[in-house]
């Protein structure tokens, strides 16, 4: 360490142990974890939909309703909307000032995303049960 140490807590403890916001690296970490989870889910979803392009309601509703597909779609919805909320939060934090506008815009975005995610999840579950 070139930097002179001015506190008893070691630098690693500072990184691990949550700065003043008490969040530490949680946001950054969860963005990575969700991106890893979303990669196989999205590849599965993209080709599952593409291969069924133009199919009528009966075929698609039955496909969504299959337990395996329904579970993956609900997981995709939950993780996908979480990842979206985190990503848009960073964009808002980077480009919007002052702080109260950041807070209001992020709350609005999260409210809309929560409603959309619940609408999607409920629709999937309704078809499946």
């Amino acid at each position: 360490m070139i930097e002179q140490q001015t506190r008893l807590q070691p630098p690693l403890g500072r990184v691990r142990g949550f700065g003043s916001a008490k969040n530490g690296t949680h946001h950054w970490w969860m963005q990575r974890v969700t991106s890893i989870a979303l990669t196989p889910l999205m590849i599965w979803f993209a080709f599952s939909i593409a291969i069924r392009a133009g199919e009528p309601w009966e075929v698609m509703a039955e496909w969504i309703a299959r337990p395996f597909n329904a579970v993956l779609l609900v997981v995709l919805t939950a993780i996908g909307f979480y990842h979206t909320a985190q990503g848009l939060q960073v964009v808002v934090e980077d480009y919007i000032r002052p702080d109260r506008s950041v807070m209001v815009v992020n709350m609005a975005i999260k409210a809309v995303l929560t409603l959309l995610a619940l609408l999607a999840a409920l629709s999937i579950i309704r078809l499946a049960v």
Binding site: P56, W57, E58, M60, A61, I64, L73, G80, F81, T84, G87, L88, V91, L116, L119, A120, L122, S123, I124, R126, L127
Partner: peptide, 23 residues
């Protein structure tokens, strides 16, 4: 692309909601 995809999620929600609503 991430921001654009966020907007595009509306079409995913429309797709499943319409499927649940009926033919």
């Amino acid at each position: 692309s991430g921001a654009a995809w966020s907007v595009g999620l509306i079409f995913f929600v429309w797709w499943v909601a319409a499927a649940a609503a009926g033919p």
